[in-house]
Design a protein around this nucleic acid. Structure first.
Lengths: 217, 217
DNA sequence: CCTACCGATCGGTAGG
DNA sequence: CCTACCGATCGGTAGG
């Protein structure tokens, strides 16, 4: 028994019914793009998902590619903020501490903006929008590699592996998060951030020495 | 000047001209699928790439999806071989050594079969073929998590991070390889395998103790 | 915000 | 009759 039944046989109709705005459509689009892939997702799929028709979507959105662009910008803006803050060497903090900070804050961004970051990490460069995103990603990668190089130069990181290789592997591990992390899963944000930093910097093996350097950035 | 010129104005024609076989078409398809994405690649694209017509491709191949399936099977067969070998606990080798072995051999497989593994790691489950591949992948993940758990139980790995989380992060780092590794690039296979195992097990930080446990599996 | 469409291109197959 | 293809087009669906 539903409350407030009217005489109308179709109680569904209201003024400007669902009332989706651009950002609600964007969220749904990002979700579908991630589940099926961008190319495998049609605007018709998106319309059905939202209970709209295809033309109704184009009332809010100018193109499918624009939706992708906005998602990629969201992810890139967040990651750029994290990386630029750590790159302008702040008051007295060493490169090693700044690197640990970037790793931790990257994990936070990946979790808070997982859908858009996931999309970013899958971009292939198939369009102008994707190529622009790849260029911004390259900028991030370069900054991260420089930060790793600084930490090596500082003497805080091992120097038997090229900094470029270290940064790819380190952030490869961080980024892999988007493939499996679920906010409602067994691992919370703090645990994952702690696991990544401690595995990356101190390693998995239990060393016999017993006194591993503990950092809690 | 080409040798053996005939009177014919079109010297291009020969018996069964280019002579592509199934595996050459598969290789080209995998390459295109990786560069543009599976859905963004049309059979027409593949035909153009090979200098054939679309119907000519269907002479060798039954469907686009079959090409994907064969690529995924190739990757899965290789990875399954590595994981099963390490899972049936061989003569005397401990879980820790077997885990290091799996990491190293996984790196070798990722490099030797990079195109098909890359495809595998991007599967979304959009078809029966993809769903079957995801199921086999889940089996692999479970085996790897069990191996990590064994190594923890053995006392060789740190126990302050859940084994499931460790295995995701460890193989997240390993798998990230396919995103950037180039056989003709700056890093050779040995260097990458060494970097991954030493970072994963001993960590990035330079410890003051000086005597890190060194393993060269 | 819908019905009704467009130019083009999709994966796949006909006859020869 | 085989192989290795071609020119043309199928029924449907894409983004817009």
């Amino acid at each position: 028994m539903t409350s407030t039944e009217h005489a109308e046989p179709a109680p569904r109709r209201r003024r400007g019914r669902p009332g989706y705005d651009q950002s609600a459509i964007l969220r749904a689009a990002i979700d579908l793009f991630n589940r099926r892939g961008y190319d495998a997702t049609s605007m018709g799929d998106l319309a059905r998902e939202l209970g709209l028709t295809k033309p109704a979507i184009y009332h809010h959105v100018s193109s499918k590619e624009q939706l992708l662009g906005q998602a990629l910008d969201d992810a890139l803006d967040e990651l750029t903020a994290v990386v630029s803050e750590a790159s302008r060497d702040g008051a007295g903090a060493g490169a090693y501490e700044r690197l640990r900070g970037v790793v931790r804050r990257s994990v936070e961004v990946l979790v808070a903006h997982q859908p858009s970051v996931t999309l970013l990490l899958r971009v292939r460069g198939n369009s102008e929008v994707e190529l622009a995103a790849l260029e911004r990603r390259r900028w991030l990668d370069d900054r991260l590699a420089a930060l790793v190089a600084d930490a090596v130069a500082e003497g805080a990181l091992r120097d038997d592996v090229p900094p470029g290789l270290v940064s790819r592997l380190l952030f490869g591990m961080v980024n892999s998060l988007v493939e499996w992390y679920r906010p409602d899963g067994a691992y919370d944000l703090r645990m994952v951030a702690e696991a990544i930093t401690s595995i990356a910097f101190d390693g998995l093996a239990r060393h016999e020495t017993g006194h591993l350097a503990r950092h809690d950035t």
